Amino acid sequence: MKKISILGSTGSIGTQTLDVVSHYPELFAVEGLAGGHNVELLAEQARAFKPKKVSVATKALADKLLADIPSGTEVFYGEEGLLEIAAATDADVVVTALVGSQGLKPTLAAVEAGKQIGLANKETLVSAGHLVTELASRRNVQLLPIDSEHSAIFQCLNGESKERIHNITLTASGGSFRDRTREELHGVTVQDALKHPNWSMGAKITIDSATMVNKGLEVIEAHWLFGLSYEQINVLIHPESIIHSFVEFVDHSIIAQLGMPDMRVPIQYALTYPDRMRTPSQRLSLAEVGRLHFREMDLDRYPCLRMAYESGRAGGSVPAVFNAANEVAVERFLKGEIGFLHIEDLIASVLDRHTAVKVPELQHILEIDRWARVAASGIRFTL
C-alpha cells in the first residue's frame, strides 16, 4: 500500500487526487492533508480518509476543525502545518497541489525528507528550479509531474533518450478568451474570465490560462523538469485539449500523448508510476471527436507568455518576480481592483523595477518574492 500526503487537498487537484484514491482503497492510504481555509471540506475529507495529520491556514480554523474530525487525527496550522504534512508523516508520496509560491518551502522540505513528489505546484520550479532539482538529485527523489502537459511529455519520453529530443511542444487550450481579439478584451469581467471551455480548475489557474501565464509557467517548469533549453520548448494552441503535449525527436518522429481532458488521468499516473491502472475517466474516441485544430502561438496577442520566456531565459531571480507579480495581479483582478489587461501591465512594471540576482539562495528568493508582491500591490491603474 502506497502512503500519500496532499498539500492543497481542498483545491481542484487535491479533491481529484482523493477521488483517484477512493477508487483504489486497497492501494492507497492517506497520511496527511493540508487544506487551507475550507474547514468544512477538510473535515469531510478527514472523516472519509482518516489521515493521521491535517493542517489548516490559521489557529482559529484549527480550533474549529478539532471538533469535527476523527479523534486520532492531529491538527496543525500555518506554515508549520504545511511543513508537518509535507515532511513529518510516513507518506511515500507527497502531492504538492498548493496554489502559488507558498508551495516552495513545503516541497523542499518533502524532498529533503526523501518523499517522492507528485508535482502540481508549478510555481515551485518557476521560483527555485535550480534549488529543487539539485536537492531532488542529491536525495534521489523523483519529481513526477501532475500537470497534464508535463505528464504527457514524461510519458512520451518513457524508454527514449533525452539526448535525441529535437524539441517538445506544450499544447494550450487558449483559455476563456481564445476566440477574442485583444481589442475585445477591454472591459471583460471576472465571470467571463472564469469560464474555461475545457477544464474544471480553480480561479487562479483559470485566469492564468486566459492570460497564458499558466503556459508560461509551464514552459519554465518544463525547462527544469526535462533539462531542455527554452529554444527547445514550443507552445501551440489546440482548442480541443485532446493532445496534451508531444515530443519531436532528431529523426523528426513525433510521439504525442492523447486523452480526454480529465486531470484524474495524470494524477493517477503520478501515483501509480511506473504502473497503469483503470481510471473512472471517459475513453477517447477520435471518431467521435472528428477533427483536431491547431493555431500558432502569437506572442503579441499573449504578451504574458513572451514575458515568461524572457524571464526564464534571464534566469536567476527573474522567474520568481514574474510569478509573484502575477499572483498579486490575479488576486487584484479577482477582487475587481484592476482590469484584465492590467494583469500584463502590472507584471511588466514589476519586472522592469527588478535587479536580477544570478544564483539566488532560498532566503534571497523569499525576500525577492516579498519585494515583488509589495511592488505589485502598490501599482495603481484607472479602471
Rank of each mutant, 00 (worst) to 15 (best):
K3E: 14
K3F: 09
I6Y: 05
I13D: 06
T17E: 09
L18G: 03
D19R: 14
D19S: 13
D19V: 10
V20S: 06
Y24L: 14
Y24K: 11
L27Y: 10
L27A: 10
L27S: 13
L27H: 10
V30G: 00
A34L: 00
L42R: 02
A46K: 00
A46M: 07
K53Y: 11
K53I: 10
S55F: 01
A57D: 11
T58R: 09
A60M: 13
D68I: 14
I69H: 03
G72H: 13
Y77F: 15
D92T: 10
V93M: 12
V94H: 01
V95I: 13
T96Q: 06
S101M: 05
P106Y: 03
V111H: 00
G114T: 10
I117E: 00
G118K: 00
N121D: 09
E123R: 01
A128T: 07
A128Y: 02
H130W: 08
V132E: 00
T133D: 05
E134F: 08
A136V: 05
R138E: 14
R138N: 14
P145H: 09
E149P: 03
H150N: 14
Q155T: 11
C156R: 08
C156N: 14
L157G: 02
N158Q: 14
K162M: 15
E163D: 12
H166G: 05
I168A: 03
T169R: 00
A172H: 00
S173W: 04
S173N: 11
F177K: 05
R180V: 10
R180N: 12
T181M: 13
T181G: 15
L194F: 10
P197S: 14
N198I: 12
W199S: 10
M212G: 00
I220W: 01
I220L: 08
H223S: 05
W224S: 03
W224T: 04
L228Y: 07
L228D: 06
V235S: 01
L236V: 04
E240N: 06
I242A: 02
I243P: 02
F246W: 12
V247E: 09
H252K: 15
I255T: 15
I255R: 12
P261E: 13
M263V: 10
P266F: 04
Q268D: 08
P274W: 09
D275R: 13
T279P: 09
R283C: 06
L286H: 10
E288M: 15
V289A: 13
G290E: 12
L292H: 03
R295G: 02
M307A: 06
M307E: 05
A308Y: 05
Y309F: 13
S311L: 03
P319Q: 06
P319G: 04
V328E: 02
F340T: 05
F340R: 04
E344C: 11
E344T: 10
D345G: 01
I347N: 05
A348R: 13
A348M: 03
S349T: 14
S349W: 03
D352G: 05
D352S: 15
L362R: 12
I365R: 04
A372N: 04
V374E: 13
A375R: 10
S377L: 11
F381A: 10
